[in-house]
Design a binder for these strands. Structure first.
Lengths: 160, 160
DNA sequence: CGGAGACTGTTATAGAGCATTACAATCTGC
DNA sequence: GCAGATTGTAATGCTCTATAACAGTCTCCG
């Protein structure tokens, strides 16, 4: 039905392996390093959970935000994602090419477009969220409920 | 003294800005998203702390590991960093071009090289570690000592 | 001991992702 | 009503990393 420009190539990403014989020096004391290791693990789980959907974390975030904030502009999308406007536009192109979103003119501002989910996009986002949320919980299952809440709290505090 | 192939161009990376008017939907419930936000913040601090040194997180990790494990091979380096062998080699090239490390033949295995810090590399790594550790502490100062330890523990648990 | 298979570093190639810059249309405020 | 900011867009380029192929070397087992 819709043409898919890039023929889905799964991005293989290697896990960060812990090698017991090695001395990790200050790395073990740095929050930044611990964050990166944890995040790579999470990314691998994310990737597995969305297999076949051609989804990446930025695409996921963009789609969720469009779903929750219909009519959001591309500049705001860029801010939320921490990327430049031009990148947000390419991302929007990608979503539009797949028939997941559409751009609609805004009557109150002729410069900007509002981005909206299509019916197909709604279904896609719902399925995607279900998978990702489930995987996130599964992955976080090594922590008990209290630890999970505490981790979330500390991370948000750190991110300010 | 040593020629620097790429003329140090700082990689501007945008922060992930929180937009209060927006609905973040499931994102606020996902550990993965919180991890990413925290990590981007940390990366920005890291980048500021190493300004002028042309350092990135993988380069930092590689240099620290070489310093703490003299004679480490490039394949192991790749495993530790979570990148392919070819990437570890380019990284080693980069360090060598700057006179920070040298490759030495291993008598016990003629296939592999051992990577070692040069005297210059030793000084560089010491300065780099000082800066990064200080910045990491500063950045983590929003947490008290107990929270910091707890965060580190939870992150390591999550990364398995 | 000799060959199969695994492992090392290396090279070349390719692609994703993103920034930067420049531009035109439009909005806002003095 | 004009200067300056903002929006989407387009073109270009760079960095990081993977993939695949290759030769040299090691290991291990028949």
């Amino acid at each position: 039905m819709t043409k898919l420009p890039s023929p889905y190539r799964p991005r293989a990403l290697a896990p960060i392996r812990r090698v017991p014989e090695l001395d990790y020096d200050v790395l073990d004391e740095l929050l930044g390093y611990a964050l990166r290791r944890a995040q790579v693990g999470m990314f691998l789980a994310f990737h597995a959970a969305t297999r076949g959907m051609d989804i990446t974390p930025p695409r996921f975030t963009a789609l969720v935000m469009v779903g929750a904030n219909p009519g959001i502009g591309q500049s705001v999308l860029g801010k939320v994602l921490g990327i430049a406007r031009s990148g947000a536009m390419l991302l929007t192109d990608w979503m539009e090419e797949r028939g997941l979103v559409e751009r609609r003119r805004r009557p109150e501002d002729a410069r900007s477009w509002g981005v909206h989910l299509t019916p197909r996009g709604e279904r896609f986002v719902a399925a995607m969220k279900r998978r990702v949320v489930a995987e996130d919980r599964k992955r976080a299952a090594v922590l008990d409920a209290r630890e999970r809440r505490e981790l979330l709290r500390l991370l948000n505090k750190l991110a300010r």
